[in-house]
Design a protein around this nucleic acid. Structure first.
Lengths: 322, 322
DNA sequence: CCGGGCGTTGACAACGTTGTCCTCGACGGC
DNA sequence: GCCGTCGAGGACAACGTTGTCAACGCCCGG
C-alpha cells in the first residue's frame, strides 16, 4: 500500500480509502490510485486488515466428516450462506473424536473466526465458555451441546422420525421389528432408539435391538443372530444412512421389510426401492448458518432451538407384509 | 499477551517465548507465565502472528462442489494431509463457474494462504500468474490449468479409462456402444470422449454420442432418440458418476449393457450391479496435497504431472451380451 | 474582504505478534 | 581478583492495515 501510495503520489491513507471505497476522495485522485494498483498488481493484505479491524469475515465449521454425504450437503449449504454474507469458510473434520473437535474449535478461535458452527462429537463443551463470553457466537447442528451451554441449536425431529418409521411398519402388519442403531452415545442414535421404543410400546423386545459402530461384520452378526431367534424379526428399521447401506449388504437378498433413517442417493433404484425417513441436510446447514449470521449482526435474544421436520418417503421396502 | 505479561510479572517477550516454546526461559518463569495464561484464558491472536511472520499455515482448496461425493472425498484427503502438516483448510465451491473460481482464488490469495489446490472450472488462469510469481504455489487437480501455466497437476487416466470401458463392452460382443458425456468444454469429459472414440475406431458413430449437462430431461431424450435409431445401441458408456445415475433412471429397466466412469456407493447393490471405471478421489487429493507441501518446504524442481491409474471393476452390467 | 464551513488529503497511533539487539547478573578460568 | 562468557530477560521496531484527528485550500455569505 505504501508503494502504491508513492507510485500514485498520494498518502497511504488515500490508497486505503480508494481500496475500501470510502467517500471523500476526488475521482481523479481515485483513478490515479487505481492505475497504480493495477500497475503494481497490489492486493490488500487481509491479515493486517483483520488484525486492525478485529473481524475476520470467516466462519468455522466443525463436522464429523467432510466426506460424508450428509455433512457434505450441510457444509455446502453453510458455504452458500457464508458467501452471501461475504464470509469465507474454514472447515474441519472431527472424525467423531471429542479431542479433535475441541482442538479444531480452539484453532478456529485462535484464528479469530467470527462465528462457529459445530456438529459436536463430545458431550462436554465447557471449553467453549471463554470463547462464547469473548463474543464468538456458536451454533450447534444435528446434535445439542453438552450441559450448561445455552446456544442456538438446530436439530432434526429424530424421535418423531423414528416413531414414524416404526408406525409405518406396524401399519403394514409387522410386530417383530428390529432396530439397528449407531453407538447410543451419539445423540441422534439415542433419540431414534427412543422414538422406536415409544412407538413399539409393549411390542418392544430388547433382543431385536443392536447398537454399535456401523461396520459390516458386527452388523452382519447381529442380523444373523436376530434372524435365528425363535420369533425372528420380519421388519427392520435402520438408524442412519450408513447402517441402511451396511444392512442392505448384510441382508444379501433376505426379504425383510425395511425403513431407513436418512435418504440416500439411488434409494429409489434398488429393488425393492428403500422407504426412508428423509431429513434435509442442506436445510439444516442453511438454518444453522442463518442463525449464526443473525447473532453476528447483533441479535442477543434467547437461544433458538428449531427442530426440523423429517418425512417418510414410501418406496416399497417398508410396505412388504410379514 | 501484555496482560499475561504483567500478571506474571515478566516482559511481553518472555510470554511470547513461552507460548512458542522457545528456549532460554527459566522453567520457574515459564510456569508462572503458563499459570497466568490459564488464569486469564489467553489464546494467541493468530492474525497478528500471521501478519508478523508472513505465513498463515493455511491452504486454499477450490473445487467444483463441496457437496459432490467425488470432490468431498478429495477434499477430505486434502484436509488430512494439511492437518498432518499443521495447516488449516479454507475451501470453496466454484459451481463450475470460471468467474467464481477466480474470485475464490483471489480471495484466498488476499488472505495469504500458503498454497492453493484448484480444480479449475475455467480455461484461463493468467490471473494466477502474479500470485505464483509472488511465491504462492498452486497445484491443479482433476483438470489441467489453462495454457501458459507450468504448475504441478494431478490428473486421472481419463482417456485410458474410457478406452478400457469401451474395450470391455467390445469384448462382450457389442458393436453399437453409445456414449453420454458431460459438456465437452470440461477437460475430463473431452478426454473420456477421446478414449472412447479411439477404442471404437471405425465403429465410431456420432449419432451414438451425446454430450451436455447431466440433467434428467435431456439425458432421457437423448437415450430415447438413440434407441429409436435403425441400429440402436446395445451398450452404453456413461462419462461420469452423475450421468451414470441419471442414465440408470432414464433407462428405467430397459436392459442395455452399461459401464460408467466413476464408482459410486451402492453400485454393487443395483441389479444388475454396475460395472465401473473407478478412480480414487482420496488418492487424488492426497497426491495433490503432498505435491503442494513439497513446494512449501522449498522444492523448486520442474512441475510434476502425475497421472493416476483407474481400474475397471466388473460387476455385471458391463457383461451383458447384445 | 473576511470568517466559517466543506470537501479533500495527510500524519499518526494502534491492532498483537515476533525478530533483533541489548542489558544484567552469575559463573568459571587464569 | 579480574575478565570473558553464557544464560535469562527486556526494550524496541516492524509487519500492513484502519480509525482519528488535524490541516489545507476553496467557496460562499455577510
Amino acid at each position: 500500500m505504501k508503494d502504491v501510495a508513492s507510485a500514485a503520489g498520494v498518502a497511504l491513507k488515500t490508497v486505503s480509502r480508494v481500496v475500501n471505497g470510502e467517500p471523500g476522495v476526488h475521482p481523479a485522485t481515485a483513478n490515479r490510485v487505481r492505475a497504480a494498483i493495477d500497475r503494481l498488481g497490489y492486493s490488500r493484505n487481509e491479515s493486517a486488515r483483520v488484525l486492525r479491524r478485529g473481524r475476520t469475515a470467516t466462519v468455522g465449521l466443525v463436522i464429523e466428516d467432510v466426506g460424508d454425504p450428509f455433512y457434505a450437503g450441510l457444509g455446502r449449504a453453510v458455504e452458500t450462506v457464508a458467501t452471501a454474507h461475504g464470509h469465507l469458510l474454514l472447515s474441519g473434520s472431527s472424525s467423531e473424536d471429542p479431542a479433535r473437535e475441541r482442538e479444531l474449535v480452539l484453532t478456529f478461535c485462535a484464528r479469530r473466526v467470527d462465528g462457529l458452527i459445530v456438529v459436536p462429537a463430545g458431550r462436554d463443551h465447557s471449553y467453549l465458555r471463554p470463547e462464547l463470553d469473548a463474543g464468538t457466537p456458536a451454533v450447534f447442528a444435528d446434535r445439542p451441546p453438552g450441559p450448561g451451554l445455552d446456544v442456538d441449536t438446530v436439530l432434526a425431529d429424530n424421535a418423531g422420525g423414528a416413531a414414524l418409521a416404526t408406525r409405518h411398519l406396524l401399519a403394514h402388519g409387522h410386530t417383530r421389528i428390529a432396530f439397528l442403531g449407531d453407538d447410543p452415545a451419539i445423540f441422534t442414535a439415542a433419540r431414534r432408539l427412543h422414538g422406536y421404543r415409544t412407538a413399539l410400546g409393549s411390542l418392544y423386545d430388547e433382543r431385536l435391538v443392536w447398537m454399535g459402530t456401523p461396520s459390516p461384520e458386527p452388523v452382519r452378526a447381529a442380523l444373523d443372530h436376530m434372524l435365528a431367534l425363535d420369533r425372528p424379526p420380519t421388519a427392520l428399521f435402520t438408524g442412519n444412512g450408513r447402517l441402511t447401506v451396511t444392512a442392505l449388504r448384510a441382508l444379501a437378498g433376505r426379504r425383510l421389510a425395511l425403513v431407513g433413517f436418512d435418504d440416500f442417493e439411488l434409494s429409489d433404484l434398488l429393488r425393492p426401492a428403500v422407504t426412508v425417513i428423509a431429513q434435509d441436510p442442506a436445510r439444516m446447514g442453511r438454518v444453522a448458518a442463518e442463525l449464526l449470521f443473525r447473532r453476528l449482526s447483533g441479535d442477543t435474544g434467547p437461544a433458538q432451538n428449531p427442530i426440523l421436520p423429517v418425512s417418510l418417503i414410501p418406496r416399497g421396502s417398508g410396505e412388504i407384509s410379514p
